[in-house]
Simulated assay, not measured.
Amino acid sequence: MESEGSWRDRRREAAAEQAAALDRRRAAETAEARALLAGFVEQVTAAGIAPQPLRAQVVGSGASYRTNLVGWYLKRNRSLAVNADGNFYVLGVRPSLKARISGLQVEPSDPPLTVGLGARDGESMPLKQLLALRLEAGDDWP
């Protein structure tokens, strides 16, 4: 009986250690992505590319909602953006009558190092590359 209990304890400890290691890795990746976004904001500002009001896109529709955000879209489909403070936003939302009338409060997300991970083939891209493409496009961006 005691050996069964100690086996469970060891498994529980191993699972906790694994979860802690995963949390540390995610935190490190998020910190690195935030640094990339901060550098992007500096570069885009220095390049004279003005921020614009951002709208949240209704997924599967051509509709969009006003937000309280001002910044730069990172993808041409306007699904991702960064504001002047370097916060990362996912702008794909569900339909909402309230949002259609009064606008939408969008909360920042933790930025990933690889955007679109787990999406269809060809839709994922390193954040660093996405930011470089956006900066390179200048004002020629929808």
Rank of each mutant, 00 (worst) to 15 (best):
Glu4Met: 07
Gly5Cys: 00
Trp7Phe: 14
Trp7Cys: 03
Arg8Trp: 02
Arg8Glu: 06
Arg10Asp: 08
Arg11Glu: 11
Arg11Ser: 06
Arg11Phe: 02
Arg11Gln: 15
Arg12Tyr: 04
Glu13Lys: 15
Glu13Tyr: 04
Ala14Ile: 01
Ala14Cys: 01
Ala14Phe: 00
Ala15Glu: 13
Ala16Ser: 15
Ala19Pro: 10
Ala19Phe: 05
Ala20Lys: 13
Ala21His: 12
Leu22Gly: 10
Arg24His: 13
Arg25Thr: 11
Arg25Ser: 12
Ala28Lys: 14
Glu29Asn: 15
Thr30Asn: 01
Thr30Gly: 02
Ala31Asp: 12
Arg34Phe: 00
Ala35Phe: 04
Ala35Pro: 01
Leu36Gln: 13
Phe40Met: 03
Glu42Cys: 03
Gln43Leu: 08
Ala47Leu: 00
Ala50Arg: 14
Gln52Asp: 01
Pro53Trp: 00
Leu54Ile: 05
Gln57Ile: 09
Val58Thr: 07
Val59Ile: 13
Gly60Leu: 06
Gly60Ser: 09
Ala63His: 07
Ser64Tyr: 12
Val70Lys: 06
Val70Pro: 00
Trp72Met: 06
Leu74Lys: 00
Leu74Trp: 04
Arg76Ala: 13
Asn77Thr: 06
Ser79Arg: 09
Ser79Gly: 15
Ala81Glu: 03
Ala81Val: 05
Asp85Lys: 15
Gly86Lys: 05
Asn87Met: 01
Phe88Gly: 02
Tyr89Ile: 06
Tyr89Met: 04
Gly92Ile: 03
Arg94Trp: 08
Leu97Asn: 03
Lys98Asp: 11
Arg100Ile: 00
Ile101Lys: 12
Ser102Gln: 09
Ser102Tyr: 10
Gly103Ser: 06
Gly103Lys: 02
Gln105Glu: 13
Leu113Val: 13
Val115Glu: 11
Gly116His: 05
Leu117Gln: 12
Leu117Thr: 03
Gly118His: 07
Arg120Asp: 13
Gly122Lys: 08
Gly122Leu: 10
Gln129His: 12
Gln129Ile: 09
Leu130Met: 15
Leu130Asn: 08
Leu131Arg: 10
Ala132Ile: 01
Arg134Leu: 12
Arg134Ile: 08
Leu135Gln: 09
Glu136Asp: 10
Glu136Pro: 04
Glu136Ser: 14
Glu136Met: 00
Trp141His: 14
Trp141Lys: 03
